[in-house]
């Protein structure tokens, strides 16, 4: 049985797709067979962030509509043979995803995959609802910023009331906080919400803090999931997140400002 993870946030532009690509690659690199699904029908981008945009033939909606089978639609990653991508369709038909269809695809994937990562679209409409409906775990990606925190709380309400687990009265979805685009320097100046502030408000288990980093843009420019950039702080943050999710006890990093010595200050780029 696969474990289904939804990467969600409510608000757009906080780093859902970056996170989905990173953690799916991270889990796959650990040797777990992982599928990552783009639920953003009409606005697919996961393929681009993972660098397989030119290899898309069939998509999620084709599989749901029986126009292709799963094996035809799944794209095998060229860097890691344990990672498979199911791209979203570019159709404008917002109703293309159905609960039955999504459930059927997830059930079939569950037979052979260890982890299924569902990259949720922004908002609280059909795509977002279906991305979280079947989930076992939720990675709530939040920026230390008022609108993102509020929307995350709204998502938490939906996760606890509208999911399959909630409807069937099963154990609730396990919710984790991923605080991204964090800038310790601004937190220190009192110009940005701190990790503690966000946790006080959302009361979520913190899986990791991802620092604001130039390397995230460079990685998406190149179609390389950021986790593969082992020299970048954001890449390391995602690697820690994957380890913690898999049960390793790793101390949190990137919360406090890195102390720069005289040389660091002189040669700061």
């Amino acid at each position: 049985m696969a474990r289904i993870i939804v990467v969600t946030s409510g608000k757009g532009g906080v780093g859902k797709t970056t996170t989905s690509a990173a953690i799916a690659m991270g889990l796959a690199k650990k040797g777990h067979k992982t599928a990552v699904i783009d639920f953003d029908v009409g606005l697919r981008n996961l393929d681009l962030v993972l660098g397989c945009e030119r290899r898309v033939v069939y998509d999620f909606v084709n599989v749901i509509n029986n126009e292709a089978n799963l094996n035809q639609a799944l794209i095998k990653d060229k860097r890691c043979n344990q990672l498979y991508i199911l791209p979203a369709s570019q159709t404008r038909d917002k109703d293309a995803l159905t609960k039955e269809g999504v459930g059927k695809v997830l059930e079939e994937l569950s037979k052979t995959f260890k982890y299924i990562v569902c990259d949720s679209p922004a908002g609280i409409e059909r795509g977002a609802n279906l991305a979280m409906y079947f989930a076992d775990d939720a990675f709530v990606v939040t920026n230390p910023e008022v609108s993102s925190v509020r929307d995350s709380d709204r998502m938490l309400g939906i996760l606890s009331s509208k999911s399959k687990r909630a409807e069937l009265g099963e154990d609730p979805i396990k919710e984790y906080l991923l605080l991204s685009r964090y800038d310790p320097k601004r937190v220190k100046l009192g110009a940005m919400l701190s990790v503690e502030d966000v946790q006080d408000i959302l009361s979520l288990h913190l899986l990791g803090v991802i620092p604001e980093s130039q390397s995230v843009l460079s990685a998406s420019n190149a179609g390389e999931p950021i986790i593969l950039d082992e020299t970048s702080d954001a890449g390391q943050a995602y690697a820690d997140i994957v380890d913690r999710y898999l049960g390793e006890d790793k101390p949190h990093r990137f919360i406090d400002e890195e102390k720069k010595g005289l040389f660091g200050r002189l040669f700061r780029s």
């Binding site: 925190v149 509020r150 919400l193 502030d197 408000i201």
Partner: peptide
């Protein structure tokens, strides 16, 4: 940040 936290706590 303090203002943001207070506003959010009330709103949430």
């Amino acid at each position: 940040a303090k203002v943001a936290k207070e506003r959010l706590q009330i709103l949430v």
